[in-house]
Design a protein around this nucleic acid. Structure first.
Lengths: 218, 218
DNA sequence: TGGCCTCCTATTGTATACAATTTGCCTGCG
DNA sequence: CGCAGGCAAATTGTATACAATAGGAGGCCA
């Protein structure tokens, strides 16, 4: 997307995830246009994307509301990711070249450095983590799969999850990636898929556990 | 979507699948606006949807082309459907009430009637088939799953597949549905998932086999 | 008082004019 | 003859004005 609608997307997304708006509240195109600093036209394009990502929902009469993600919704998202990224890992294991695996290893070295010290660097972790997962999805060479995952993977959820990780959780995450790389080197699709599956399922439970705590804290 | 953009979507889709345009050829918003009989604004919305369904692709410089689906693309689509609809069947098996299963049975009776005679009624078959699959996806109670499947299931591909089915293939399809219903009655998610998987995988091979024949015929 | 009808307002949908970007040609220079 | 540069045309992107539609408030009648 070009400048204005890309900017609209980014700003509105930030606005939605900033926590200042309440789930379920109504929004208007005009409001969002003001938030994004552009006219309604690019805002509409951004809204379509956000709707596809289910950060916005539409009433039957086309009015727009901030989506309200339940625990079940998050569960479902992680379940779908587990299936689809597991499949991506499986395909990647069949296709990755040694050079590409080297590259993954390099990215994961970065990730290790971010978490192996005394105080983990969450931002660095997230960056490396995103690059790592995207590289695998990319290596699966399946445009549809890539597109569907792009819709499903909500980085803010990943962020919130990572924030809940203990130092040990983060290190385990890095070790999962190590094992994925081993599976790739071995060219074992089933292994890769299984590792990816447990990696993501654990992430869900970390997230869900944290959400429970939040609920208790209220 | 409201009237004009819905109409644009339907007309452009028909235009793309009518076979009069060549895959890979460039299209402009203005052309499509003329085809749809509306202005560029609703055409753009329709284009976003068609892009998500990968019937259109965009060059890096935002120009638009008719997508060219390879055999691998079709394979991938069916593979993803197998995974996701299999998952839907699994979830549905856990949730469907007796009344809902009765309803499925009724729909499949319609489907049987469409194919059990001397000359199968493909249109009736397709309608019942679509309703049947949508009911299962619906019963999975997973909004994300439903949304993703809606993007993936290209009815024109289903149509082309059904056209290639022999009378016996069609009857087997109806029997697959019978078995799905049995799995639902038994409340056996694994069974339902497995049946759905083989059902879809067979569909792919029918399609692929037909495509091979086409290629040979040329 | 309760339900319904109507009109007004808020909101989304569509068309169109204009801006920005990209492409490809055409010219001129080496 | 080839290539670089820039100009013109085609195409997409954005803003804005206007149209259509849905929701809600208020009044009217039973």
């Amino acid at each position: 997307m070009s400048k204005a609608s890309e900017q609209a997307y980014a700003k509105i997304r930030g606005f939605l995830l900033g926590g200042t708006v309440q789930p379920g509240s109504q929004l208007t195109e005009e409001q969002l246009a003001e938030v994004a600093g552009v006219s309604r036209t690019p805002v509409r394009e951004a809204m379509r994307r956000l709707e596809a990502e289910m950060l916005l929902v539409r009433s039957p009469s086309k009015r727009i509301f901030v989506a309200d993600w339940s625990r079940d919704d998050i569960d479902e998202m992680f379940t779908l990711r587990q299936m689809l990224e597991g499949h991506a890992a499986n395909r990647a294991a069949r296709r990755l070249t040694d050079a590409e695996i080297d590259r993954l290893e390099e990215v994961n070295k970065e990730l290790h450095e971010a978490v192996d010290g005394e105080t983990p660097d969450i931002v660095r972790f997230l960056d490396a983590n995103r690059v790592f997962h995207e590289a695998i999805t990319e290596a699966a060479h399946s445009p549809r799969l890539g597109q569907v995952l792009a819709m499903l993977v909500e980085q803010p959820v990943v962020l919130r999850t990572a924030r809940q990780y203990s130092a040990e959780d983060l290190k385990q995450s890095a070790r999962d990636h190590d094992e994925l790389i081993a599976a790739f080197r071995a060219g074992d699709p089933g292994w890769a898929e299984a590792v990816m599956g447990s990696h993501l399922r654990r992430a869900f439970h970390t997230f869900a556990g944290a959400a429970e705590d939040d609920a208790v804290a209220e």
